[in-house]
Nucleic acid binder design. Structure first.
Length: 275
DNA sequence: CATATGTCCTGAGAGC
DNA sequence: TGCTCTCAGGACATAT
C-alpha cells in the first residue's frame, strides 16, 4: 500500500546514493516467481552497470533513480514493494540488488510480487510517466488546478482522488483520511462540490500528506511497509478513520466510523461530520 | 469519451 | 490442530 508519503519516505531514505556509481546488478535467487523487470534483467544490467546516479526523484508512487546517461531506473512498489538501503525485512522476497561502488546496496523487496522495476531510456520516460499517464503531484498542485481536473466528473470524490492521471500520489488510505479532515462525504459526486469545498479538500490533502511524511508513512497491521532502513512508520497512530470501522469518531465524539466499498476498495468515514 | 469491473499476488485471519 | 476461504489494494487491461 505504499502511497505518496511512504514512497517519499523511501526516496529520502536513499538520497545518499546520489553521486555513487552502480557496480553490479544482482537478481537474488527467489523461491517465488521473480518480479517483472522491464524490459529485461539483461537490459537493466547492461544500461545501469557503470553509471553514476545523479538524482533520486519520485513520480507519484514510484521512486526514480536518474542515471548520468539520462536513463532512469524506476521502482514501482504497488501493493507490497519496498526500496531499501541495506537490510530487507526477510531474505525470502528480495527481488533485486543494486550494488554501489561504495559497497552499499539499493534493494527492491516485494512480498507479493506485484511490483515492478523498469529501466526507462530518456526518450521513453514521457511515454511511461508523462502527463498523459500521471497528473501533477498531489503536493504540487493548487486548489484551482485540483478543482479544474476533477470538478466535471460525476464520480464520487473518493474514487476520483485515486485517479493517478488526474493527480499523482493519493491512494486508498490517504483518500479516506483527507476527506475526513476536510469534512466531505466520500460519496459526493465531484461535480456537486462547491469552490469552498474544493479548497477544503486541497488544504486537507496537503495537511494529511505532509503529516504522514513527517511520521514516515503508515505501517499497517501486516507490518509490510518499512522505510529505507527497514524501520516502521508511525502515521498509523494518527489515523482518524482508516481501518477504524465501528469506533467512535474522535472529532465529533458522537458518530461511528463506517466502512463502505467504493470501486472495490474500502472507504472509511464518519457520516455524522462528513457532509 | 468517461466510467466500471476483473486481474495479478501472498499472507493474515476467520471459521469450521 | 489444520484445512479452506476471503480479503487487502496498487496499476493496468478489458468491458460497458
Amino acid at each position: 500500500m505504499p502511497e505518496l508519503p511512504e514512497v517519499e519516505t523511501m526516496r529520502r531514505g536513499i538520497l545518499s546514493v546520489v553521486g555513487r556509481r552502480i557496480a553490479e546488478v544482482r537478481l537474488p535467487r527467489c523461491r517465488k516467481r521473480p518480479i517483472l523487470i522491464a524490459p529485461s534483467p539483461a537490459t537493466l544490467r547492461r544500461r545501469a552497470v557503470g553509471q553514476k546516479i545523479v538524482a533520486v526523484d519520485r513520480a507519484g508512487k514510484r521512486v526514480v533513480l536518474r542515471l548520468a546517461s539520462g536513463d532512469a531506473i524506476v521502482f514501482e512498489p504497488r501493493m507490497a514493494g519496498l526500496v531499501l538501503l541495506g537490510t530487507p525485512p526477510t531474505r525470502e522476497h528480495l527481488r533485486l540488488r543494486i550494488v554501489l561502488d561504495d559497497g552499499r546496496e539499493v534493494l527492491f523487496w516485494d512480498r507479493r510480487g506485484l511490483g515492478l522495476v523498469r529501466l526507462v531510456r530518456q526518450d521513453e520516460f514521457e511515454k511511461h510517466y508523462g502527463a498523459a499517464k500521471l497528473g501533477p503531484d498531489a503536493l504540487a498542485l493548487s486548489w484551482q488546478e485540483l478543482a479544474a481536473r476533477l470538478a466535471k466528473s460525476r464520480r464520487p470524490i473518493k474514487v476520483a482522488l485515486l485517479d493517478q492521471a488526474a493527480l499523482a500520489g493519493v491512494g486508498n488510505l490517504y483518500a479516506s483520511e483527507l476527506l475526513h479532515l476536510a469534512r466531505i462525504d466520500p460519496r459526493r459526486p465531484c461535480n456537486e462540490l462547491s469552490k469552498a469545498e474544493w479548497r477544503r479538500v486541497h488544504a486537507a490533502m496537503l495537511e494529511v500528506l505532509h503529516a504522514a511524511i513527517r511520521h514516515e508513512g503508515s505501517t499497517l497491521g501486516d507490518g509490510t511497509y518499512r522505510n529505507a532502513l527497514n524501520e516502521e512508520g508511525s502515521y498509523q497512530n494518527h489515523h482518524r478513520v482508516y481501518d477504524r470501522a465501528g469506533q467512535r469518531c474522535e472529532r465529533c465524539r458522537r458518530g461511528e466510523i463506517e466502512r463502505i466499498v467504493q470501486a472495490q476498495r474500502s472507504t472509511y468515514f464518519c457520516a455524522r461530520c462528513q457532509k
